[in-house]
């Protein structure tokens, strides 16, 4: 079996709104392995994004413990988490989160400027098939193109982990498939551990493993014996 990249032990996350306590995560035990593509499925509010944020070092768990390889993230101070994100993690978000005042190339450079061993921004954009759109601003690009820029930005640092939160959520199905193809390609080519959050049950069929969430807990874990290529997925 491949090396374990992430391990969580009874991770809980509680949000306090006024007098009400909301359990976003209610005791999650999980292992993710190197090179694996995992899809996290579940309804809104089931805790997928919260878990992703904790794995990505964007948020702390209220209780429980989290490891990245042999490094414990649980109580890592802000400075340590910043370095962890800078060195190891790539993010892709549903709404792309591009900086509108920077071109595609510059958005990628935002990451390459601070990463220890990045690939050139141009190479990253070529990988997502945007070599000819590099000097366009986000406002001049379609949603699919913007998301591909976001992916290029995420992979430009050669991350070990790619965390994608609803990467196709804002896209139509044809464009969504293009984005999934890029993600699958990166996963194959670089062996990047990829976690994809989605509402879309069809997408699970391209993953190695599928983890179902319900009410802040893992309700089931399944392994795909046969994976579909993104092009074969229809929704």
């Amino acid at each position: 079996m491949s090396e374990c990249v992430f391990r969580t032990e009874n991770v809980t996350k509680v949000y306090q709104t006024g007098d009400v306590k909301v359990f976003a995560l209610a005791g999650v035990d999980l292992e993710l392995f190197a090179g694996e593509m995992t899809v996290l499925l579940g309804p809104s509010g089931s805790g997928k994004s919260t878990l992703l944020n904790i794995l990505g070092g964007l948020d702390h768990a209220t209780e429980g413990r989290v490891w990245f390889r042999d490094q414990e993230l649980t109580d890592m101070p802000d400075r340590g988490l910043t370095k962890y994100r800078r060195d190891h993690v790539g993010f892709v978000f549903q709404f792309y989160n591009l900086v509108p005042s920077l071109t595609a190339r510059e958005n990628v450079q935002l990451v390459t400027d601070v990463s220890p061993n990045p690939m050139p921004a141009e190479e990253a954009l070529a990988l997502v098939d945007l070599a000819d759109r590099m000097d366009h601003f986000p406002s001049e690009m379609s949603g699919g193109e913007q998301q591909r820029v976001a992916i290029a930005r995420a992979i430009a640092k050669r991350p070990e982990i790619l965390l994608c939160d609803e990467p196709t959520g804002a896209l139509d199905s044809a464009t969504g498939v293009q984005v999934l193809e890029v993600l699958a390609d990166i996963n194959e080519r670089f062996g990047t551990t990829t976690v994809i959050i989605t509402h879309n049950a069809e997408i699970q069929r391209m993953a190695h493993r599928v983890i179902q969430f319900q009410d802040g807990k893992i309700s089931s874990v399944s392994t795909n014996e046969e994976r579909l290529a993104p092009a074969e997925i229809v929704w």
Binding site: L58, T82, R86, L110, V114
Partner: peptide
């Protein structure tokens, strides 16, 4: 948020 996510201090 994004700048932080990609590792800016």
């Amino acid at each position: 948020g994004l700048l932080k996510a990609v590792g800016y201090s």
